[in-house]
Design a protein around this nucleic acid. Sequence first.
DNA 1: GGCATAAGTTTAGCCGCACAACAAATGACG
DNA 2: CGTCATTTGTTGTGCGGCTAAACTTATGCC
Lengths: 396, 396
Amino acid sequence: MSTAAVGGPARQESLRHRNLGLVLRHVVDAPRPVSRADVAAATGLTRATVSALVDRLVEARLLAELAPVAAQRAGRPAVPLVPSGGVVGVGLEVNVDYLGVRVLDLAGTVLAEEVRHGDFRRSDPADVLRALAALERDVVGPVRAGGVTVAGSALALPGLVDRITGPLRVAPNLGWRDVDVLALLAGHEASDGVLAPWLGNEANLAARAEARARRETGPSSFVYVSGEVGIGAAIVLDGAIFPGRHGWSGEIGHTVVDLAGGVTLESLAGQDAILARAGLPRESPVRALCDAADAGDAQVLEALAVAGRALGVALANVVNIVDVEEVVLGGTHAVLAEHLRAPLEDALARHVIAAPWAPVEVVVAQAGAFPALTGAALAVLQAVVDDPVASGVAVG
Amino acid sequence: MSTAAVGGPARQESLRHRNLGLVLRHVVDAPRPVSRADVAAATGLTRATVSALVDRLVEARLLAELAPVAAQRAGRPAVPLVPSGGVVGVGLEVNVDYLGVRVLDLAGTVLAEEVRHGDFRRSDPADVLRALAALERDVVGPVRAGGVTVAGSALALPGLVDRITGPLRVAPNLGWRDVDVLALLAGHEASDGVLAPWLGNEANLAARAEARARRETGPSSFVYVSGEVGIGAAIVLDGAIFPGRHGWSGEIGHTVVDLAGGVTLESLAGQDAILARAGLPRESPVRALCDAADAGDAQVLEALAVAGRALGVALANVVNIVDVEEVVLGGTHAVLAEHLRAPLEDALARHVIAAPWAPVEVVVAQAGAFPALTGAALAVLQAVVDDPVASGVAVG
DNA sequence: GGCATAAGTTTAGCCGCACAACAAATGACG
DNA sequence: CGTCATTTGTTGTGCGGCTAAACTTATGCC
């Protein structure tokens, strides 16, 4: 989902493109405003070069200068640079029980958002996508009227999406199969003049938001578990999403954890499965499981133990295969985290072959509500940061 | 294991480094000699630039010019360029029942090799590495005396090696644990003036050889299964090895395929396990299994069916997690391929969620004998190709 | 022997970065 | 209050590396 050109010949332009991205990334990733001199010191470029690059980025409205504020030391005061609000990315999502739109600027600030709840199991793709297109118009319209540039949009879907622009192959919990999402969307918003959105898997995009949220706090190679109605996962390595060949990585829901019975992970650790085994009605909120477990309900505790062990074995397989350092629990599994932790950590310690030298940490997601919406918007913004020129925002 | 610098600022030099690599890669990867003009057309660089770059590569003895041969058309005849034999990589391997050294030049030609058989289960690391160092001296010495430049060496080990230079954590089938391989090797060959070898996992390096062997024939994203005494695997994406965070990816041998019993893949599909279940003595060659299966021995067929099904389920998990297109069977599993194929393909078709749109092919490895030796040498050579300057072979 | 064709080289020009000198804006200090 | 040290940002100057276009070299064809 990244646009960094790696194949072709390197021309003079390439230098500039790369260094524009380098400088922009530095300012965007910094926790506080930085000066041109700071960027120069951190990147290894000279102040002169950084100045020239920053000037272009400011002109492209990707960066903005704040008023110089006198530091507490000698020397000319620095001009603080911040990501400008002039360029935004739009995140879209269709999921089983809601659809939403979220607009983020380069600083990661939410400029506008709207989430509409509903039940989209066995829904008609055309209807749902029409509603999404309308919602996007409502949310993005006012932002655009404010004069900002929309760099693009990305749509998160709970299923197999063929890399970036291809069709949606299957979304089991929506009941969708072989849907040409882009064609349906284009029919409804062609007049808008907006670029077609990129398409991505919900877990992959949510993991992107999580990677950003965890940027400061620790190692950024982890498996992100997205427990919604199904169980998805995504692999993050050094802060970058690992998409796989077609963009279909991380499909752990159908992992077989019991050879004899052909039992899958989802049938032991999926939301519906846990509720059923716990003897609670299918419509119960996940919190009900926690409450019953805290109250000591034996059947519920047993269901959670089974789920935790199954999840642990499946995740141990993942860690053995891709070698990451952490497991991040998101979605419903984040809510249940403290009740799943013991069997999960036990299974990881037992079955991960590298555990004695690199223990696998289990942590709870911290990307906030609807992380896939944030991640989708971030995917667009990351493409801008990676190569501001190729993404069409900055001038050569 | 690649040396392509991606973090820092792009200077003028970076252009040259990158384009040197681009040109060199093109000549090395081409199936037949190519001209400067061919390279220019293929890379998008101008003939002038390619000429300047090629001149440097020839001077560094990475490329060589052949005598111009008149083509069957008008125009000045082209000067054919080929990878020179002037720079070589050395592959080393210690495995359960042999150790070896192989010397490859950039064209992939084996210039020298030696494999010494033995039984290294529960061996003393110091003894074995002393023998390896001696073998390396014997094999590499004459080559070096011929005037070629040794770009470096890499050592394949059947265990967990901490990325590139770290210690060997554990090699179960050698009985080694927390061995500082580099220190032991340095003690025996310091006088040689050779660079310390890179260290790598046997399956990962064998997969590298396989990726090169399959370069022409098809898609180059696959799981490589390395069935020796244990079962290792490696993931290849677009021709590049996927090492994981510490270099420990692909450890599928301990995949749990039966939750209730905690049964691992190795105990169902490992060489020793299949022989035991088939009722054959532990020392039997793998061919004996094929012969017995062809003769219709029911117990042997059953053992192979069990192994194939277990392997299929484990590999389906891998494919679901990392999304690759093919399964390549290497080592002992290559020999057994035709007897494992049916249950394997069945399990893959059943459990890989993306199978309806992208069926997973099962193919047999074609990298030849001792692929890890080849792969280790290729790892060194690939670093040279990726950045001839950084690897110290070409001049600025 | 001219002519078309293609490979490789030479020359001029431009782009982008480093380097160094310089201008600008502040705190420290007598 | 003035000078100096200090740091930021800008302005030339030079050089490396690529492109573009003209030129040279070497062949086949008529």
